[in-house]
Amino acid sequence: MSFAVPTEHYLLLSAVLFCIGVAGVATKRNPIVVFMCIEIMLNAANLGFVALGRHFGDVGGQIYTMLIIAVAAGEVAIGLAIIVSLFRTRETIDLDEADLLKL
């Protein structure tokens, strides 16, 4: 079965989005924006899963995607709670300021 848009195009798009997310995580110091970049990376992975699920005619790719969305929702809730409590104790959320665990 051949598709109008080959699966490889979707995989390449997914790779590009993942790289953009990595660039954001590595260059941003605002943890909220870093979280958004992590969401971009998770979304890129989701796109890859759904594209491969379509390619192999298997619904498992879509179920993986939904599990990832559930984990992402939990991750965002915890992460934003950490940011709020970080702001409460330090009055700033700059990631370079939060270096208590650094040697």
């Binding site: 079965m1 598709f3 699966t7 490889e8 195009h9 995989l11 390449l12 790779a15 379509r54 390619h55 192999f56 005619g57 298997d58």
Partner: peptide, 16 residues
């Protein structure tokens, strides 16, 4: 990644 030569899956018009 874009020329990986994925082997054809079991996708049919019905699964789509």
């Amino acid at each position: 990644v874009w020329k990986s030569g994925l082997h054809a899956g079991k996708a049919t018009a019905k699964t789509l």
